[in-house]
Design a protein around this nucleic acid. Structure first.
Length: 259
DNA sequence: ATGTCGCGCGATGCGCGA
């Protein structure tokens, strides 16, 4: 069973790229971030034509998350518990016995602003939810755009990002706190190659020069990690016309029947 | 020749967020 996370930077601007990638990559579940659209304008039909159902938590102009599934959904939850819902950044559903949480973490820049405090608080709430999800001992995937570069080897030049919320030690520490609950970073469990990225800025020739960051992650609970078969980053969509600035990160879990 | 993109607003550019 193949899972992917992809910040598409507007689903309406990216629909051709997304449909094309679904056909090529054939994922079972896709977590989309920054769909930037109200639920009623989400291009459901085109996606349904490829055999996916859509759970959507949209917002006008900014943010917004959706989950695509070719195996349906149960128990959809569209707010991260433990605080006021300010933005559409969270969506959770059960798919084939796996609890899937789609995360669009606040960016947090500039530091020492309300936005930075908001990010730290959001991370605390996510940690609490991540801990709660472990209690039932079902497989859990926390996937999405974390806006966290976990180590200096996950960015082309950490000096260039000094003072940026994506690499702040306390942000990294908050990310590690979630991992230490017992979650495994799927990509890093399968690939230790340094300087592998999921995001390249549109400006300054970042893509052409491979000046990227690794900020999109799939975190697996122990029961999900036990079923991890493979994981990777599919950089092809980033090189295509009218690309998102992010590219899909994916993993495959063994089906229960094969396990 | 140029070099970021997408959005809303409500205009045919600008400011914002990323």
């Amino acid at each position: 069973m193949k899972f992917a996370t992809w910040n598409v930077n507007s689903i309406r601007a990216r629909i051709s790229n997304v449909l094309s990638w679904l056909k090529t990559a054939n994922p079972d579940v896709v977590m989309l971030q920054e769909i930037k659209v109200l639920d009623e304008y989400f291009p459901r039909l085109k996606i349904q034509e490829l055999g996916y159902q859509c759970a959507v938590h949209g917002q006008k102009g900014y943010n917004g998350v959706a989950i695509l599934s070719n195996r349906g959904f149960d128990n959809v939850l569209s707010c991260l518990p433990g605080g006021e819902e300010e933005d559409a950044r969270y969506l959770e559903a059960t798919i084939d016995g796996i609890r899937v949480a789609n995360i669009y973490m606040p960016n947090g820049n500039p530091v020492n602003s309300k936005k930075y405090v908001y990010k730290l608080n959001w991370m605390k709430r996510l940690k609490a939810r991540a801990e709660e999800l472990l209690i039932e001992e079902m497989p859990v995937i926390l996937g999405g755009d974390y806006n966290v570069i976990p180590t200096d080897d996950d960015v082309y030049d950490h000096d260039a990002l000094q003072g940026n919320a994506l690499i702040k030690p306390e942000i990294r520490a908050a990310f590690r706190e979630i991992l230490w609950l017992g979650y495994t970073n799927a990509f890093r469990a399968k690939d230790h190659t340094k300087h592998k990225y999921s995001y390249w800025d549109y400006s300054g020739g970042a893509w052409q020069n491979d000046h990227g960051f690794l900020i999109d992650h799939l975190l697996l609970s122990p029961q999900a990690a036990d079923r991890l078969e493979d994981a990777g980053i599919d950089i092809t969509p980033r090189g295509q016309k009218k690309a998102s600035d992010h590219t899909p990160v994916w993993c495959t879990l063994a089906d229960l029947a094969d396990h």
